[in-house]
Nucleic acid binder design. Sequence first.
DNA 1: AACGTACCCTGCCGGC
DNA 2: TGCCGGCAGGGTACGT
Length: 258
Amino acid sequence: MPELPEVETTRRRLRPLVLGQTLRQVVHRDPARYRNTALAEGRRILEVDRRGKFLLFALEGGVELVAHLGMTGGFRLEPTPHTRAALVLEGRTLYFHDPRRFGRLFGVRRGDYREIPLLLRLGPEPLSEAFAFPGFFRGLKESARPLKALLLDQRLAAGVGNIYASEALFRAGIRPTVAACRISKPRAERLRLAIREVLARALEVGGSTLRDFSNAQGESGYFQLEMLVYDRAGEPCRQCGTTIQQIRQGQRSTFYCP
DNA sequence: AACGTACCCTGCCGGC
DNA sequence: TGCCGGCAGGGTACGT
């Protein structure tokens, strides 16, 4: 469930379930992936925030439980065959379901993200005022990487992942392969607005649900119905009929209309 | 510093 | 039917 719209949707659904409750225990058997979770135990949950693709549970006593869902992580109300950890609250237990085990949990003192370097270098929230043109354009100018690869690296905009990178580029009418530093000002601005619009729209409809309808547990979003290029290789472009292409950039698939 | 590539995991799908 | 390669919304650890 992992790009910004899916994580934000998770945050909104989780928040009313956990707010004010004491996190009694964090149960798991994998201290390498779920670190320092004991620090979070026995504390009340004061807020649930998000930064990029990270969920931040603010606990009393200046402690945070930071969660990253990885590729397949999510919180469930019932245990599953792929439950890797459990957050035991007062009234209920949240089960951390994560087949591929790319997800992570960290107990930290508030704001002390030394163990989570990615969180320290995250760019601005794309749906906030902080995602302004000057900084975005400067970031593009400083890199010769293909635009799509740069969008995935979380520094220009926190929370953009593989689906929304392709979708935003298509909506802005820009090839994923062009060197970031070669983008003109007007096209950069179109891209910035496209990123905002795609993420905002996806959030409106609860994010995207790809192949996990069966165990979705009320977590299904509907943005996949509006995807214009992602996962549409070989199909006609919805705007011009040209066949959508799929290429590889840094071991990830990119979809675009030539 | 800033890129590219291999690797981390498990499940599923299409092709043979 | 059964097996196998390739791929999947994430990120890291290295090499150059």
